[in-house]
Amino acid sequence: MSADTGLSWNLVSDVQQMWQLDSMVNAYRAGTIVAVLAAVVGWFMVLRRQAFAGHTVALAGFPGAAAAVYLGLSASWGYFGFCVGAAAVIAALARDGAGGGAEESALTGVVQAFTLACGMLFVSLYKGFLNGTDSLLFGSFLGVTPGQVAVLAGVAAAVLAAIALIGRPLVFASVDPAVAAARGVPVRLLGVAFLVLLGAATAEVSQITGSLLVFALLVMPAATAQRLTVRPALGLGLAVAIAALVTWFGLGAAYFSPYPIGFWITTFAFGCYVLAQLFGFATRRHGTGRRHVARALGVS
């Protein structure tokens, strides 16, 4: 992504210059959809403290792609199959109640280690898939075709619609599972549904962003937003805004500098998170986002 011409002081002309390239326009379209989708799904992931599960599901895309290529299928099938499959395994085998946290932790670790080991096996069988760790982990955003943007938009719309449908009970079940279950909310079913949605979203997004950048976009804007506000609607909006801004600036910075986009997006997002932490300390609002939300909803 080296710049043909340097960055000038006139930002408008800089943006115009950048958007003269079709690939950059497509990258911005894709980046915006990715940011919105990841921020919304990530907000629930952070609320449910399932960052480890999210990371595992995101990484499952890499062996999925390797397996699909080895078997001669389209890589998309591999991404979807492995991401949704890993999410389903974690959701199905994890148990509720005391001690479940330790078990889910071990289970998630084993699932991640095994899927990565499978990826390693497929790569060594196939030979030559694994060139460029950088793009595998962090994607490049460049070379996104209009067709891919359309598919991405479709998947994003479907996942967001499903989230909208189960959003309210899911927040309740995440904040206080015991009370939610007592009131007849299907807590376990919602947990499974959410992880599968997380799998579908990461499968689609990681084809464009790579396995690790999707995790950064899932966790960082959402954690920042939950540090700043306790209200679900406001928090979701804030997470989307942060994710979109961070992605736009990251794409721009990567275009005008020799350094990769993964570095810029994670650095901007981490900067926001640190600022939010400092703000939180300054205003003395300690504790987890979940507890804040519980207080805001008045359910705990």
Binding site: V219, F263, T267
Partner: peptide, 13 residues
């Protein structure tokens, strides 16, 4: 999650 996502970004850098 936050710390290590950023550290990975640094790694690519």
């Amino acid at each position: 999650g936050n710390v290590f996502a950023w550290i990975l970004g640094l790694g690519v850098f």
